[in-house]
Design a protein around this nucleic acid. Structure first.
Length: 588
RNA sequence: GCGCCCGUAGCUCAGUCGGAUAGAGCACCAGAUUCCUAAUCUGGGGGCCACAGGUUCAAAUCCUGUCGGGCGCACCA
């Protein structure tokens, strides 16, 4: 449960009560009332803006409204004191007992703690990676993969019914070039000297084994055959093999998407004609000529051509967009509309796509198309990922083992050693998705405060280290959550201890806010905060022995503190679960 | 020329559907450590939140314009 939401309900109830008693006028809008933690901790534990919001419509001064509400809040369970401050904030401090109850709640819930119902079981589709099946994944894909996957977990925790999806771009020119590349490697495997690989054809070494396989299974029958005879076969096999590799690359990052949708299958099933019919039926298509882009030099081969255009401007786009090329064939755009319409027809009103920033110019038209084709029922959010600059010790990092001239995802993970997956996942979430970032391979494996992966992992391991130590004298079987939940938590009375619980108690709100904003990076920042307050408490114990977790002379106090330690470990594990990082119990 | 994203401490970045005196880490300065893991800790200095208007009880946050940086700009995918 999100405690702020609970208090928010209480405040709204108080306002309604005051309306009923005639102290406040009727017809007030309570929907914008919030209860939040004050930014400055000296203002208490919770704060509401209710008085400032209601003052104007009620025709009263904010402070007067506040003075009416404040005593009612003071009467709520768990509230220790209430102040009216500033322009009309009502601040409340909560009792230690209230916070102790929160800790009990954490221990009872385990890593499920933080789960929310705000999603209400609503279906939502998250499409990410969707790289062309023309080679192994590289670093540029890693960020979108991690953001997408963490977002999926986050939305699930927030109560949505999430489907994770990969759209396979297996139609069009690129995969034809792939087929040609496979044919070239096939000829090479049959002993031919292929020389320089032509422009546009994929040159990577990863095509060599596919060529060899084709040579073994097909013999030399298609060696000199015209393209039309082999291109379908070569394309299908190459795509299939590369897709297996891509899935392995994703698995190395701990990613297993639910649905892989083939563009080619959709096209063959007539999904694009379906789009055309739908748009036609809504009178959103016409034959027209697109102007060349103004200002900048027009493309050299520009000539006015008539084609089928979609009225994207009716839905907020800057210009109408072609559904068909001038030769009458479908554009990539039209296929992608079919993809999104297909999702909608599978029951997803909410859709999220994770794209690279270089596709930013494509967002408006896709959103316009989704609205058009779903009669404004469907809703597409697009998260753009800015590029990642790989560094090593501050210097740009390049290497090329498996393929042409880019760093593959596998290379990256392997370069980072045993915890490569966890390091990549965490670091990728240490920036907002739309900020550029540097990924320094040296810093990412450093064991220091500078490295958030380590800092958070270490906090978790440190918790378990304490529990292991305590187990030696108290017995491991007495330190489980269901035993520690019965500890006498009254002993947790130091401000630093309460501060830790307060941070634990913020986790459910964090999950909800991050899920609503579609921003998984907030989880990584929260975990860094939590680790920080926990390490802080630990360090206090260094100066003040009375605050150490284990007091050999007082088992009662020790158990209370171990309950807190277990609570911290639980919430860190819960958060790491969301971002897909393994909570290590030992770092040695 | 148009569209989108970004502009917050010396550096890298957070900043909750608008909330109180704008935060963190690094770097810098001054101290601490026979102690459950020193795999450090405490304190301090440092800001016209790019700029100018507007909306609001309240703006880093929303709107308009300007400047600076990135990305994208017929039928490619």
């Amino acid at each position: 449960m999100n405690l702020f939401r609970a208090f928010q309900d209480d405040v709204v109830a108080i306002v309604e009560k005051l309306v009923k008693s005639g102290s406040l006028p009727e017809g007030l809008d309570t929907s914008r009332i919030t209860v939040e933690p004050p930014r400055d901790a000296t203002h208490g534990d919770i704060s509401t803006n209710a008085a400032m919001l209601l003052a104007k419509p009620a025709g009263m001064k904010p402070r007067d409204v506040a003075e009416m509400i404040a005593p009612e809040i003071a009467a709520l369970k768990g509230v220790a004191k209430v102040d009216v401050a500033g322009p009309g904030f009502i601040n409340a401090g909560l009792t230690d007992e209230y916070w102790h109850d929160r800790l009990v709640y954490v221990l009872k819930a385990g890593t499920a703690y933080g789960a929310s119902e705000i999603g209400g079981g609503e279906k939502i589709n998250v499409e990410y990676v969707s790289a062309n099946p023309t080679g192994p994944l590289h670093v540029a894909h890693a960020r979108g993969a991690v953001i997408g996957d963490a977002l999926v977990n986050l939305l699930r925790k927030a109560g949505f019914d999430v489907t994770s999806e990969y759209y396979i771009n297996d139609a069009g020119n690129q995969v034809d070039q792939l087929a040609r590349s496979a044919h070239l490697r096939y000829r090479e495997a049959l002993g031919e000297v292929i020389g320089e690989i032509p422009e546009g054809v994929y040159p990577g070494d990863y095509m060599i084994p596919i060529g060899q396989e084709l040579a073994e299974t097909l013999g030399d029958s298609l060696k000199d055959a015209p393209e039309a005879e082999w291109i379908d076969i070569f394309r299908n096999i190459a795509i299939e093999r590369l897709l297996v590799g891509i899935k392995e690359d994703l698995a190395a990052l701990g990613i297993h998407q639910d649905v892989f949708t083939s563009e080619r299958d959709l096209v063959q099933a007539g999904a694009v004609e379906h789009v055309e019919d739908l748009l036609q039926g809504r009178d959103l298509l016409y034959r027209g000529v697109l102007e060349p882009p103004k200002g900048k030099a027009a493309p050299e081969d520009y000539e006015p051509r008539e084609q089928t255009l979609f009225r994207a401007t009716d839905f907020g786009d800057d210009t109408d967009r072609p559904l068909k090329k001038s030769d009458g064939s479908w554009t990539y755009f039209s296929n992608d509309i079919a993809n999104h319409l297909d999702k909608y027809e599978r029951g997803f009103k909410k859709m999220i796509d994770i794209w690279g920033a270089d596709h930013g110019g494509y967002v408006k038209r896709m959103q316009a198309a989704v609205r058009a084709v779903t009669d404004n029922e469907g809703e597409l959010d697009v998260k753009l990922c800015q590029i990642v600059h790989l560094k090593k010790g501050g210097e740009p990092f390049r290497m090329s083992k498996r393929s042409g001239n880019f760093v593959t995802l596998r290379d990256l993970i392997e370069e980072l050693g045993e915890n490569g997956k966890d390091v990549v996942r965490f670091i990728m979430l240490t920036r907002k998705n739309d900020s550029q970032m540097d990924f320094d391979l040296e810093k990412a494996v450093e064991q220091s405060r500078d490295n958030p992966v380590f800092y958070v992992q270490y906090a978790h391991a440190r918790c378990h280290s304490v529990l292991r130590n305590a187990a030696e004298t108290l017995g491991a079987d007495t330190l489980s959550a269901d035993k520690l939940v019965k500890a006498n938590l009254k002993h947790l009375d130091d401000a630093a201890e309460i501060e830790v619980i307060r941070t634990l108690a913020a986790w459910p709100k964090m999950v909800e806010a991050a899920a609503e904003a579609h921003e998984p990076h907030r989880v990584a920042f929260y975990l860094d905060d939590l680790a920080s307050v926990f390490h802080g408490l630990w360090n206090k114990g260094k100066d003040d022995t009375r605050l150490r977790f284990i007091d050999e002379n007082d088992e009662d106090v020790t158990r209370a503190r171990l309950a807190l330690v277990l609570g911290v470990a639980t919430v860190i594990a819960s958060g790491l679960e969301v971002i897909g990082v393994t909570p290590l119990e030992e770092l040695r």
